[in-house]
Design a protein around this nucleic acid. Structure first.
Lengths: 137, 137
DNA sequence: CAGTATCCTGCAGGATACTG
DNA sequence: CAGTATCCTGCAGGATACTG
């Protein structure tokens, strides 16, 4: 599943006369998934669900600051990519549980490894920032 | 360097009367670095420089689709965070070389590990998408 | 409870022009 | 070559209201 990960790489429209054809749609599909995973709400949702599955409103509380709209949208994207499993019980009031799929857990682990590294090394980052700002002031 | 990673978590302004004080500035600083690293241009720049350091315009060619403005902005953010080292030679025409710092390489490796996983497992993602779209159509 | 539907706006980031 | 400065616009995403 290797392909150009470059974002703007627009494969030239070699079939002529298809001006309306969305060349971006042909861009590497893994980029979209990566954006779902690393985006602000996606990464927070993934790490929250990595701890344990839960219901919609509980998730809203765990992912502090997320709106209903964005959480719903994020969950749909992650479910569509096969990272999140949604299980709705047909009861009243409705009860819907979300949890990560095995793939979702695997992705969350790599993501947490990256996050962990950055957090560990924040002292270095912070002093680099001071040095950088000092050079300009 | 552990702290709440939740994005909207706004520590309540406990010191009264500082309405103008930017509470967001107190949010976890690692989140900003994470966004520089995982953002569209940040991730592309990091992986490009991980292969080898290079000059500005060479980098522009490697990171296909990036504008001068965004590449410049991205490099400043990564340099400020201590992930990229910038070395300018005072010659004419100017020559500036960019390369990753040791921290930059460490971060790039974890990032590439995440990207690699997602690319490996794209067949699963793609079939999950088909299933999801099928359920709705 | 678990969402969807609308409206609206700030700002990321593209296009373009200019510079040491 | 290696950038900076301006202008401008699409759209991510917040606020608000509504629903099965």
């Amino acid at each position: 599943m290797e392909c150009e990960r470059t974002a703007g790489s627009r494969p030239r429209a070699d079939a002529a006369g298809d001006a309306a054809f969305d060349v971006f749609a042909r861009a590497c599909p893994s980029r979209a998934t990566l954006e779902h995973v690393t985006g602000k709400w996606g990464s927070l949702t993934l790490t929250a669900l990595h701890e344990s599955g839960c219901r919609f409103n509980e998730l809203r509380r765990r992912v502090d600051g997320v709106s209903e709209k964005m959480l719903s949208q994020t969950l749909h994207a992650l479910e569509r990519d096969g990272l999140v499993h949604r299980e709705a019980q047909l009861v009243n009031p409705p009860r819907v549980d979300y949890r990560l799929t095995p793939l979702g857990h695997a992705v969350a682990e790599r993501l947490l490894s990256l996050i962990g590294l950055v957090e560990e090394r924040m002292p270095e980052v912070l002093s680099a920032r001071e040095a950088y700002d000092g050079r300009r002031a």
